[in-house]
């Protein structure tokens, strides 16, 4: 029994990371109809910056903040300098271009930090006992809390602020919103920066759980893709639900039979796409 509760809670932590990391992909598509393959750079740069700041100052909180800032900064540069200029090109073009940017990013990481994977120590080593004796590392619970906070924040931003309203109107009809005197580009940029900051945060939070290496973005890219495809490209709610499902598939499934931790998500995605080609919450493109 204990092992399953542990698996479920670990699964929630995995979901948290997946949600934070996939948001930039999903929002990039929702806003501009661009599958931005470079989104995982924010994640890996976030992790590397966290690693560097921790090894200099020893503070994880500073590291995570640094990761977020760098993620947001990269998002700002990529959105204003690249994505905005190519969003009306064919899908094939944008995918290959952003993949090229991703490769350049991996190259930069290799120049700056080298090829060797770097370990990051967990900032909280405390173990929490829940449900009468099930031992859970507090750090995993922290990830879950942060991810929930992020979800609430982005939902509030989308539904309660003027930015969110203008944004949703702007996706449906750009010209109308611009006619009202709203600078839709600025709003797209702000939203994209928020999403890439979350990806940076995801990198920071995941750094102690995995080795920080040049190809970490690549490994995560696949899972992030599965998350957004399963949830439906462009849907924040879908991304969240898909992350929840996949977290459980990876951890509970992996506990059942170890290889499921890796292939489980692919299998789930395959069957979903065959039944619903636009994912769980995706709209017809």
């Amino acid at each position: 029994m204990e092992i399953w509760i542990t698996a479920i809670i670990y699964g929630l932590a995995t979901s948290g990371i997946l949600f934070l990391v996939s948001l930039a992909l999903s929002i990039g598509y929702g806003l501009m109809r661009v599958v931005n393959m470079e989104a995982m750079l924010y994640y890996s740069f976030g992790a590397y910056v966290t690693y560097t700041i921790i090894s200099v100052t020893g503070s994880f909180i500073l590291g995570a903040l640094g990761g977020m800032v760098v993620g947001a900064g990269l998002g700002l540069i990529v959105e204003t300098q690249l994505l905005r200029k190519i969003y009306d090109r064919p899908m094939m073009f944008t995918m290959v271009v952003t993949f090229g940017v991703f490769m350049i990013g991996i190259g930069i990481i290799q120049f700056v930090w080298g090829l060797e994977p770097k370990p990051v120590a967990s900032p909280i080593s405390a173990i929490v006992k829940i449900f009468g004796g099930v031992q859970i590392p507090a750090y995993r619970l922290l990830i879950i809390v942060v991810a929930i906070a992020a979800y609430i924040l982005i939902q509030l931003m989308m539904n309660r602020t003027i930015i969110g309203k203008a944004l949703r109107a702007g996706i449906d009809n750009r010209e109308n919103v611009e006619g009202l005197g709203v600078n839709i580009n600025k709003i797209f940029t702000i939203t994209f920066i928020v999403a890439s900051a979350f990806a940076g945060l995801g990198g920071a939070l995941n750094a102690p759980l995995v080795m920080v290496g040049p190809y970490m973005g690549f490994d995560m890219l696949l899972f992030a893709f599965i998350t957004v495809i399963l949830g439906g490209l462009g849907s924040i709610k879908g991304t969240m639900v898909a992350a929840l499902i996949l977290g459980q598939v990876i951890n509970v499934g992996g506990t059942l039979w170890a290889p499921l931790a890796f292939v489980g998500p692919f299998i789930v995605m395959f069957f979903t796409i065959l039944i619903r080609p636009t994912g769980l919450f995706g709209k017809e493109i």
Binding site: G100, F102, M103, I104, I106, Q110
Partner: peptide, 8 residues
């Protein structure tokens, strides 16, 4: 990777 990206 860097060079591949630039060429792309």
């Amino acid at each position: 990777e860097f060079v591949v990206g630039i060429i792309t």
